[in-house]
Design a protein around this nucleic acid. Structure first.
Length: 428
RNA sequence: GUGGCCGUAGCUCAGUUGGCUAGAGCGCCGGGUUGUGGUCCCGGAGGUCGGGGGUUCGAAACCCCUCGGUCACCCCA
């Protein structure tokens, strides 16, 4: 057991999200929710953990399953695992509840992977994502990609590149994999045991390897898109037509295979130039037309994506976006000095009920300190309950941007603030 | 899981070949202003030097272990 000093801090590879940075976190999720709701998606909240078999359908030879899963046995002897990615649980829910297709859902949820942390890679990370089950219409592929593209635009994220590929369908895949394996094995003797092992486990996973010595062989490998079945080829073309019609730029990436075995047909990944770190993928996804069937459901096509919140925020940081301020409309200064400050308590609640973001100081601090707190809170107005004004049943209202101050009757305060902030952006 | 670099106040960092009571800036709290912020001046609080062990008359500094961070690999959001 680690010493106590190491216990009362976040475990390795995980972190807290605190104000003020968390304001951007909230804003990001809100923008995502707004965009997907406009496209007819409903929210799905699936469990944080599932039977381990659910995630094994992601691919037993993938790193995510083979070496990064937070698996455990519960007190009933069940083999469970914390969700390592978003799609499997949603598909499991679809199979279990058989909703009417097409089923269009979105989520925001944490994922867990036991891996060595570095910038943009954590043991718990959050993703927003969507899944569309029950249609193989290429229009669904385009819609999903357009949603993610639009989300990045909503955030003002620049330097984003869309990589697009097709993994082929059940008909085209075996022939391609055989051709690829043959090509790779022809060079296996020169490239060592690890290369050979990868080829045997899953030749597709060799395609996006970064090992320098392998690049020459990978360059000359047969390409997926040259082995597509007629149906897959047409589907891929229609997806590209749709993206072009929407003015979404993309780049064909024949060696983009991504990390999960379930992908078929369309796969895509958004990369940012803002992070020149190794972790430049800020979102990605694709089709998984066989996954529901593998979970015991009826054959059901599906497509979706996940986008990493932490990485998107890192990209925003890198392009110099300052975290948003949670500015207040009003900060209340209590100049009466009555114990408990009941009058300011009542007034600040009145302002909040009226829809203003209003706050006040605790602990009977000096008037000077309260004004300072008002400034630090980024408040638009300071409202002071003072003895002089109280005698006239009024309050002093100071515009903290301009510095001008006026006296306003207490009963007219809400109306006065509403008039003054008309046209300005408030929380009201 | 493998390898490199790094851990001193809330934050960013200084701290000489091992030697006084471990410092600075910013931030925070208070005062200057009997009721007015953002500027300025004065004062104050805040540190198991990541943790444990060792070497030494003496360790923030040197050695070992450990925890954490960071970067790269593997791979991914």
């Amino acid at each position: 057991m680690p010493p106590a000093d190491d216990v009362f801090r976040a475990p390795k590879g995980v972190h807290d999200v605190l104000p003020p940075e968390s304001a951007r976190w909230v804003d990001l999720v809100a923008r995502f929710a707004r965009r997907v709701r406009r496209a007819g998606y409903g929210m799905v909240v699936s469990p944080l953990f599932e039977h381990v078999e659910v995630f094994e359908r992601v691919g037993e030879h993938t790193d995510v399953v083979a070496k990064e899963m937070y698996a455990f046995t519960d007190k009933g002897g069940r083999q469970l695992a914390l969700r390592p990615e978003g799609t499997a649980g949603v598909v499991r829910a679809y199979v279990q509840h058989h909703p009417t297709p097409p089923w269009k859902v979105w989520y925001v949820a944490p994922n867990f992977r036991y891996e060595r942390a570095q910038k943009g890679r954590y043991r718990q990370h959050w993703q927003v994502g969507v899944e569309v089950l029950g249609t193989d219409d290429p229009g669904a592929d385009v819609e999903v990609i357009a949603l993610l593209d639009g989300f990045y635009r909503d955030l003002g994220l620049t330097g984003v590149k869309l990589l697009l590929n097709s993994m082929g369908d059940a008909e085209s895949r075996p022939g391609y994999v055989a051709a690829l394996r043959e090509h790779l094995l022809a060079h296996a003797d020169a490239l060592g045991d690890e290369f050979r092992a990868r080829v045997h486990a899953n030749p597709l996973r060799v395609l996006d390897a970064k090992v320098e010595d392998w690049q020459d062989v990978i360059e000359r490998a047969p390409q997926l898109t040259e082995h597509l079945s007629e149906a897959s080829r047409v589907h891929f073309e229609l997806v590209q037509e749709g993206l072009q019609a929407l003015g979404i730029d993309y780049e064909l990436a024949p060696r983009l295979v991504r990390g999960f075995d379930y992908y078929t047909s369309t796969t895509f990944e958004f990369q940012t130039a803002a992070l020149d770190a190794a972790q430049n993928a800020i979102g990605g996804g694709g089709r998984y037309d066989g996954l529901a069937e593998q979970m015991g459901g009826a054959p059901t096509p599906g497509i979706g994506f996940g986008a990493g919140i932490e990485r998107v925020m890192l990209a925003l940081d890198a392009q110099g976006d300052a975290p948003m301020l949670g500015g207040l409309d009003v900060f209340l200064v209590d100049g009466l000095g009555a114990p408990g400050g009941t009058e300011s308590l009542v007034l600040v609640e009145l302002l909040r009920e009226a829809g203003f973001a209003a706050d006040r100081a605790f602990g009977g601090r000096s008037v000077k300190a309260q004004w300072k707190a008002a400034d630090r809170a980024g408040a638009r107005f300071g409202v002071m309950l003072g003895r002089d004004e109280a005698a006239r049943d009024a309050v002093a209202v100071k515009d903290l941007f301009s510095g001008e101050q006026v006296e306003v009757p207490r009963t007219g305060l809400v109306a006065w603030l509403q008039a003054r902030t008309a046209g300005e952006e408030t929380t009201a």
